[in-house]
């Protein structure tokens, strides 16, 4: 009987997930423990205000400003905070640089750790069992599923985010982007290129 299941009280809520959330929200609201308007505000923040455009701005700046890049690789937390990117799930940031010799890729095998202030809420695949299970063991096969094939001389370094450090990949600047201003360069930086499962777009 679910009502006797003291170890798993969630079984007392409706099984359908949308109804389960709604039921819990209703109970908490009635007791004054959550404010539905605050929930709307949280959703709006991560739907519309905080997203990969923040990380793209950091990457483009690193591409065009060597001193900034040096500071970023030395102490990213401070440098991105100075740009206004700090907060929940981004309290300790490390930026790792892709080179011809080394490609970086980020995963969280134990849950779904991700640099929220720079990239927003992680996409579904990042939180999937398949990505969590396989990225550490066969990163090249996973990359192939994203359409990325690395040259054999490039080593892959996979970062498993097991603590409160959040990693951002600094991808290599694509060929043909030299003459572009920072804004146009930022437009080439995809979310996946900052996780390491993709490469920046090449200017057309």
């Amino acid at each position: 009987m679910p009502h006797d299941d003291h170890d798993h009280p969630h079984a007392l809520l409706p099984p359908d997930p949308a109804l389960r959330v709604k039921a819990l929200e209703t109970i908490l609201t009635r007791k004054g423990l959550i404010d539905p308007a605050a929930l709307d505000e949280i959703i709006d923040t991560y739907q519309n205000k905080i997203g990969p455009q923040n990380g793209a701005c950091v990457v483009a700046k690193a591409w065009s400003d060597p001193a900034f890049k040096q500071a970023l690789l030395a102490d990213a937390t401070q440098v991105v905070a100075d740009l206004g990117f700090y907060g929940r799930q981004g309290e300790h940031i490390v930026v790792v640089e892709n080179t011809p010799d080394q490609h970086n890729m980020v995963v969280c095998t134990l849950c779904s750790c991700y640099p929220w202030p720079l990239l927003g809420i992680p996409p579904g695949w990042y939180k999937s069992d398949a990505y969590r299970a396989r990225a550490v063991r066969e990163p090249r096969k996973v990359l192939a599923e994203f359409g990325v094939t690395l040259p054999p001389e490039t080593a892959v370094r996979v970062w498993d985010s097991t603590a409160e450090i959040r990693y951002l990949v600094l991808p290599m600047r694509p060929e043909g982007s030299d003459g572009l201003d920072e804004g146009d360069q930022a437009a080439l930086v995809t979310r996946d290129s900052m996780i390491g499962t993709g490469l920046p777009m090449v200017p057309s």
Partner: peptide, 13 residues
């Protein structure tokens, strides 16, 4: 689950 087998392909969005 890191390293586990059997989860199938990753499906990019």
């Amino acid at each position: 689950m890191g390293g586990r087998f059997g989860d199938g392909p990753v499906r990019p969005e």
